[in-house]
Design a protein around this nucleic acid. Structure first.
Lengths: 229, 229
DNA sequence: CCTTCTCTCTTACGCTGTAAGACAGACTAT
DNA sequence: ATAGTCTGTCTTACAGCGTAAGAGAGAAGG
């Protein structure tokens, strides 16, 4: 039981969430884990919200945003995506929190600027570069949320899915059943990799052919249409 | 105050969350909203978790997954993405819940099968079709989460961002500052539209050139590498 | 009239986040 | 050495939470 500190508390909180799920995390239980009363934690943190913020920072701070020398932008983006996904999957209990807070928070701003500069140096505008980073980030969070599945702390993902699948193999949903049977619904790493390659290809094409400003894409027109139905 | 029912309760819950945020939603307050004691709700719902599940279903059930006659698959996927994003943005308070539960839930399975069949008819395998749907869905959820920003109920997104931006216009993060100043961080609809077009292009390319099974992509290799560092 | 079903209520328990402030020990200043 | 402040932990207390258990009112059917 090392000396108490904000860091020690966050470490214990991550450990607790990994083991019991975020729903069970309370100030009293976390205090007990550290051999201390609940109110003692309030000497290091203003409130529970700050604890959760810290948890997210703790988990995402391991994401490797720093560009290597000579690294091409597609490799950089791919590495960021893979690194972010790995960080999130390492502590899936924290995922529901991550989804609710900005991923590129204050603590990682220097690294973000570094990544932007790599993109900028190869012809992106500042805005395109940030858009690219945002697209990679939001997709990765969304995808990882879906892979991690049910989160609150009950890990009944498997029995749930099994029951679900065996229930529908009938004639009502032949394609869905076929896709699930062939692993289409569960091979997350592969689907993630495919999508990231797609996005990177698209990002490159967007930079080459135009800025995406001014000329409306098909999807933009669809969005505008939907806004006033 | 129409007669009480599961539907009436869910309606009231959506209204409550839209107004006060999900953090403030409690069985007692929701009961009060309906002129009834908290325990009365338990005649219609087994527990609060079921209420939240119902909330997600309620919000996502308006997503239009049904293929029109003669609609091409890229238009179908684009329409699904746009429709899902609109449904989510209509009730941003529910978003944190959506992110934690499967979006394509049991209630929409018929429509999913219909969408799959459109893709299947134009040369996708069942698995590729489901992957495509999943990619569109997870990206849309991830992106919408990021646009809706801070969710718990405090809508301090603007002051927060303003303070954040004005603080960093200095020389430390010139690219980030330039991108934000030009609206790169906030023009969500445009960035979403761009990314969806990218994904659709990529999905089409994936179908044309190969299945994405067997041949490893760059990203897949990166994922495997990261798994055992 | 009696029973059963449907719906709503009251009461109670253990849990939560946290405000307010008491207290002990260590350091600092006179 | 004495007095004062600072640091870290504790106790107590309060309002609110989800919900288990069961009482009771009113309608429906025999």
């Amino acid at each position: 039981m090392a000396k108490l500190s904000r860091e020690a508390i966050l470490d214990a909180a991550v450990r607790f969430v990994d083991e019991h799920g975020i729903a069970k995390l309370s100030m009293r239980k976390l205090g007990a884990e550290l051999g201390v009363e609940a109110m003692t934690l309030y000497y290091y943190l203003p409130n529970k919200e700050a604890l959760l913020d810290g948890l997210v920072d703790h988990v995402t701070s391991s994401v490797d945003l720093v560009a290597r020398g000579g690294e091409q932008w597609p490799d950089l983006l791919r590495r960021i995506a893979v690194s972010l996904r790995a960080a999130l999957l390492a502590h899936p209990g924290v995922l529901p929190l991550v989804s609710t807070r900005p991923v590129l928070s204050g603590s990682s701003l220097d690294a973000v600027e570094g990544a932007l500069s790599v993109l900028y140096a190869t012809g992106f505008t500042a805005r395109q570069a940030l858009d690219a980073l945002n697209i990679i980030g939001t997709f990765t969070v969304g995808h990882t949320l879906a892979e991690a599945g049910r989160t609150p702390g009950h890990e009944d993902a498997d029995p749930d899915l099994d029951a679900f699948v065996s229930e529908l193999d009938g004639a009502r949903h032949p394609l869905f059943a076929a896709a699930v049977r062939s692993g289409g619904g569960t091979n997350h790493a592969e689907r993630f990799a495919l999508a990231i390659d797609m996005l990177i290809t698209g990002i490159g094409a967007g930079r080459a052919t135009g800025t995406g400003h001014g000329r409306a894409t098909n999807a933009e027109r669809a969005v505008s249409r939907a806004r006033r139905p």
